[in-house]
Design a protein around this nucleic acid. Structure first.
Lengths: 205, 205
DNA sequence: CGTCTAGTTGAATTCCGTCAAAGCGGGTGG
DNA sequence: CCACCCGCTTTGACGGAATTCAACTAGACG
């Protein structure tokens, strides 16, 4: 099946898998780890336009250049396919294509939802929305089912800022304020404990 | 073919085709006119997350609720399909599915590019980027080929603001300033004449 | 000519970004 | 084990870009 034309590969945290503007060489399926998709401007401003979790796809099937770079945020493992081989395989396997189409439609919905956040929400609303979404998406991988109140983010402050279209200072201040207000606890740099989910949801707008 | 299960329908400017959160009843192919996809918050803030031009698709195949409402910005004409019938038809026509997949991937790229604009660009950069993109997308429909310097927007100031994540006042001020600086001419409310494309591209960042 | 909507302009405010400095924590080497 | 260093984060002071609130103007249409 599909497995035959793919090969497993590990990649270290911080390593760049694809560069913005390159002819996309591969398509991949993430098995473990977290990656980011980044669009950057000439002057260095960056916006993270997608966070890739295990079971998500990366790459751009059907012969376009990649419009963003992909970087591993943690050590990651993935199943990589040569793009041409993948395209051919997909063309002859409608079921795979349908699956891909569904995923892509879901991604598009998520991206559009995120546009609302970027364009219209305030800093505190952004942070609150972000934490709630992360608690959901990170719960999938954890042991117990259900949404968890405590989790470890795979990113630092700067990266949170790049996801939300804020500066690192604003991000830090908002988190500190939420801790002061008793909504959160921040036991270590990357750990988040949600202490008042209701209030957080209210804040998220 | 596909035409058999669809029916043509006209819709007036301002009319809402789908409501955010509804079970999407239809899928449609736009033949003429321009529509907007809008996500709105409880307090009335709105963000336009997509502008739909002729030949674009709207709706959400494969049984999810629509995550945004769709409204006609001009009188429009489209070919509407019952969603269930469309889903079935698509499932048995891989070529249609592939076409749909390509379109959706393109839309996703466009959305992600737009996220950079919303999250990281300044007001003037947003306006400049917007005008350039519109001059491109509206050129497709016009008579002559190539990108045109003069075109008529299908939206008012408030809608431009909702696309860019700005207020109507900021939008107006930026346009006025660009006219004063000789980058544009604004012969009437909805007409734009680009007088210095280079400068505009520089501004867009 | 009056009314109505859409757009423009002005002044005051505020939220967020910028610049700068200090704090923390984790790793390394003495 | 402690001292030191480095990167990341926090905190503070300040400034500026964009929003807010409000008044005014320009067209469109009866």
């Amino acid at each position: 099946m599909l497995g035959k034309i793919g090969r497993r590969q590990k990649i270290k945290a911080g390593h760049v898998l694809m560069w913005e503007g390159d002819e996309a060489p591969v398509v991949a399926n993430v098995l473990d780890g977290v990656l980011k998709m980044v669009v950057s401007a000439a002057d260095g401003r960056e916006q993270i336009v997608g966070v890739v979790f295990p079971s998500d796809f990366i790459g751009r099937p059907f012969g376009k250049e990649t419009p963003y770079s992909v970087t591993a945020m943690t050590d990651a493992e993935m199943c990589i396919f040569n793009r041409k081989a993948f395209d051919e395989f997909a063309s002859s396997h409608p079921d795979l294509q349908q699956k891909l189409l569904r995923r892509t439609l879901d991604e598009l919905d998520r991206a559009r939802h995120w546009m609302m956040l970027l364009g219209r929400k305030t800093a505190s609303e952004k942070i609150a929305s972000f934490l709630l979404e992360m608690s959901e998406r990170l719960s999938g991988q954890g042991c117990e089912a259900g949404v968890r109140a405590s989790f470890e983010l795979p990113f630092g402050r700067q990266q949170i800022a790049d996801i939300l279209g804020l500066t690192i200072e604003t991000t830090s201040r908002q988190l500190t304020k939420m801790r002061a207000d008793g909504l959160l606890d921040l036991p270590s740099r990357r750990e988040i404990v949600i202490q008042d989910r209701n209030a957080l949801e209210l804040l998220a707008g």
